[in-house]
Amino acid sequence: MYDRGKIITGIIIFLVLLFIPFLYNFITGKATYVPEPVIGTSEKECVESKVFMRTDHMKLLDEWKETVVRHGVRNYKARNGKTYTIDITGTCMECHTDKEKFCDRCHNYAGVEPKCWNCHVYKKVAGR
């Protein structure tokens, strides 16, 4: 193999760079960190079950968006038989009032940046 030295050093540097984040989290103990969102309501149930909302809320919101905007349907019949108004500001954020503590905590942890709030309004923005 030509340039054996260079190639092996290169690979080692690459591997070190690759593992720095893992090492960092391991040493600082951040690997075990779990975000704790504040639900912000005493209400017993959400639109759907807690488990479903935790894993699939983005799918629900995406479907909601399509239903309202593209089909003009504003009511959502949930599995528990109740009907909810499809409205991220009026329905979701009415209970989960604190966006920073409810949405952002997990989203920041997961490194996702939903664009909802570029347009949609939550209390703080409306109140200013």
């Binding site: 759907e48 799918k59 479907e63 239903t67 089909h71 349907v73 959502y76 019949k77 599995r79």
Partner: peptide, 11 residues
């Protein structure tokens, strides 16, 4: 299919 309840599209 969506994983959640059907949406009744009332056209």
């Amino acid at each position: 299919k969506p994983a959640f309840a059907d949406i009744s599209i009332q056209r």
